[in-house]
Amino acid sequence: MNFGLGEFMSNFDRSSDSPPPGDTLDPITDAALEDVLKTVPQGAFALAGAAMGLLVLAWLAVYVFIFLARGPIS
């Protein structure tokens, strides 16, 4: 499966950010990356979503059961 290499290769210039060839620390091959990208953000979505949801619920609980319970303020 190629990534539509054809017409894009021509106008593609190597940005300074990508690892220089022969870089030992980043041996990620495109095949591995492409395979991983099949499922990637789902885990982060679930984790970040759960964390944020927990935060909002905890905030709501404190707001209603502790703050509002302690009487008005103005």
């Binding site: 290499l5 894009f8 060839p21 091959t29 495109d30």
Partner: peptide
């Protein structure tokens, strides 16, 4: 390994 991932911007 190709130089970098040739994906479109």
């Amino acid at each position: 390994m190709s130089e970098t991932s040739p994906l479109t911007p």
